[in-house]
Design a protein around this nucleic acid. Structure first.
Lengths: 294, 294
DNA sequence: CTCTATTATAAAATATATTTATGTAACGGT
DNA sequence: ACCGTTACATAAATATATTTTATAATAGAG
């Protein structure tokens, strides 16, 4: 069976129009009709109900079933292609959230350079959710991800290398600036500057607000640590970050949380179970585990 | 891309011979050569190293990488075909280990009959490992599986419905027959009749022998509860089963284990996350959860 | 009732895969 | 060293599959 037919089928269900799918793939319309006919004949079942009365395409039960497998297959194909391209180009794509990049990457980079591996590394940045997706669909080979619970996903292998508490940063002008410790519940009436939704910080933060029964006043969300830090320094609000985000600035103060059961920032090395690591990638992984490892 | 090429490629790596693979698929040998050439051209890399000096085929790094995806894709295809066939035939294949079948199936069957669903059910039997595999490769739609830990597998959704302790069965003639309770360590010198390796009982049993530091004397292994029970009744040895295996025979006695941390037999309803359930299968699942559910 | 948008069908054209026939390389036996 | 055998590669011919072109069918909008 030709996987092109599955691609046509997948798009047909997404776009619900034979002619649009034909345009999408730069083929003529009967091609799509024929592809669907082939699939239907092959599986001996109607996959799509052509309802010309209401000008709508509905997916039958068997069509629905085939769709889930078509998606899986098409994903495998794109991942395979990307992996092989990178293998032949001797490239490793490392996915890092900005906080991890700022804190851990300098050490990693030094070690990688010592092993002549730095030139084969390309990094991509983003929140944990985006990066996990990038890892899964083959855009990245190895990821360093933050999480609040031990990572365990289908198809992904995670290896924890660090754990950090979350802390509060306030401006030196802030009333709390002379405290060293604080309970999260005492922050009930503060303004918060936080990361955008994609980051694990929010999972941890939401956990704490839920546990302390308050709705936080989030005044701004950014996806860059420096932006957040600058806003905090300007006393626009306070923020909630890991202690590794500490930039040792003298216009800011870090407060330790005194809460009993605190969420932790767990940093892990993650890669696909199906991914066959090249010697170079194995070396990168070894450098990562040695540099970061416990 | 044609998935046939992936099938050729997969078999080529398994059989390490172009001509054997050609025979296997009832095609001529150049077909396999060409298929591999297509894949290599498509991915722009050598996938298999033809070493005619040592008459061996070795898989390159990129070949290895493609292989993992080829396997996944071929599996998706067979699962899709089986699922769709069963969907069109309105059939549901239920996988059950014999212990679960004997104990729970009568109730389930009665309920299924009441919902006119029994005629659409086909059951397959086997040990938990075999059945989990059958579920994963699409031979079964829904499984009732025993396990010692909460089931959690890639692609499979498990829903626990019962927990039972493991117990010891001895013949009425056996010296221990008048006891009601016993510590596992006191069984150090007994002869055991057990299930074959495929069953969860062995995982639990091994856990207990390891914890009590002894190598059990296993005199016979069978994969049928009745065979085991008859051997126990004949005092050939004692056995280790769940209490639900109790056949209320008067030539046998059940002993409860007094150990502190005992493994438990956890019975779960399991199905593929990718599987789209038909109304009929949903009904079967509903009957199962209602009949068995907690 | 006609025009337009959308899908289906049939035949022709094109692309792709397989077979047949043959070549090449390496090995083992004599 | 020569010959037969095994195993894979190559090229041309053939078979099969897919796509296009041209056109029909169907239904909705105006």
């Amino acid at each position: 069976m030709n996987t092109r037919d599955l691609a046509y089928f997948y798009q047909l269900i997404r776009q619900k129009s034979f002619s649009k799918v034909a345009d999408y793939f730069h083929v003529t319309q009967p091609t799509i009709t024929m592809a669907l006919k082939r699939l239907e004949a092959d599986y001996g079942t109607k996959l799509i109900q052509r309802d010309r009365v209401h000008n709508q395409l509905t997916v039958t039960a068997t069509g629905q079933q085939l769709l889930t497998h078509a998606e899986a297959i098409l994903n495998e194909l794109t991942v395979a292609r990307q992996e092989i391209t990178r293998l032949t180009q001797q490239q490793t794509v490392l996915a890092l959230p900005p906080i991890i990049e700022t804190h851990y990457f300098p050490q990693i980079a030094a070690q990688l350079q010592a092993h002549q591996q730095l030139e084969n590394i390309r990094t991509i940045e983003g929140g944990s959710v985006t990066l996990r997706q990038a890892l899964r669909n083959g855009e990245a080979d190895i990821a360093l991800l933050g999480s609040t619970a031990q990572l365990s996903y289908q198809q992904l292998l995670a290896q924890e290398f660090d754990r950090q508490p979350f802390t509060i940063f306030v401006s030196r002008q802030h009333p709390l600036a002379n405290r060293h410790h604080i309970a999260f519940s005492d922050l009930r009436h503060e303004h918060f500057i936080l990361f955008t939704d994609d980051f694990v910080h929010n999972a941890a933060f939401n956990q704490l607000t839920r546990r302390n029964h308050f709705r936080p006043d989030v005044v701004y969300r950014a996806n860059d640590t420096h932006v957040i830090m600058n806003l905090v320094a300007a006393n626009v609000g306070i923020t909630f970050l890991t202690s590794i985000a500490d930039q040792h600035r003298n216009d800011m103060v870090r407060l330790t949380l005194t809460d009993d059961e605190q969420p932790e920032f767990i940093a892990s090395i993650v890669y696909r179970t199906t991914h066959v690591l090249t010697p170079a990638q194995q070396q990168v992984l070894a450098v990562l585990t040695q540099t970061l490892g416990r």
